[in-house]
Amino acid sequence: MAIVIVLVLMAVGSVLFHIWTPWWFTEVASNWGAIDELIVFTFAITGFVFVAVVLFTAYAIYKFRYKEDRRADYEPENKKLEFWLTVVTAIGVMALLAPGLAVWADFVTVPEGAEEFEVVGEQWNWTFRFPGADGKLGTADVANITYDNPFGMNADDPNGQDDVLIEDYEVHLPIGSPIKVLLRSKDVLHDFWVPQFRAKMDLVPGLESHFWFTPTREGTFDLLCAELCGVGHYTMRGKVTIESEEAFKAWLAAYPTYAETVPAPSDTGGGAASGQ
């Protein structure tokens, strides 16, 4: 009968662990707080099912434990019961799926006028590019990359001349307005992730991926790579600082534009800093 006691303890203990756990989400710093709510909701439904199944099992084991003089029921099926279980389960699943897809629809729809900036990943560093005064990122290609042109900028593209290049492991972003993050990789898969933002997306060499979010809380957050990218994967780190528009502009002004880096091959100020 030990198993009955253990099952009950497991069900109760899992719930208590969940209530008292010191390990939970970081405080959200973006507009994706709805995901946290969905997770709590999913927890409520799945937690109820888990506890119900385990307790029902424990009770059945206790009540119908082996007795020499008793016979089990003969019960090949029960259509009515199976039908209702199917219906109730389907309703539960739909209750989870519907709000999930609604939030996903938001996630895949980038708001009009979102500010763009670009993240370029390589083994095992982050670099960043802002569109500059014209608000447009110039074209770039891995094939253009040389020692002097680490972003692979297209020298003939007028949109690219004023792009601000940030060869640094820390990036600053302004609070309060939607940001479209464009993602490029020079070599292998990476994944841009700040846990407090909740959102993440892979950087895929050969194409440009994206996602969007609105920063809602000032502060400096860990940026990490969430897609295995070789032996230095765990060292591919960075920082994202969310601050006011003015502070952001002041920070950005300290970095060179592409045009400024071209004539002088020697470094102009950004430095070749790297994560580790």
């Binding site: 994706w32 997770i39 999913t42 799945t46 699943v93 799926l97 994944d191 993440k200 969430a226």
Partner: peptide, 14 residues
């Protein structure tokens, strides 16, 4: 059910 539900997977994947 967390990971299959696409948006919930976003913070939890990896």
């Amino acid at each position: 059910l967390f990971l299959g539900n696409v948006i919930v997977d976003i913070p939890l994947s990896d």
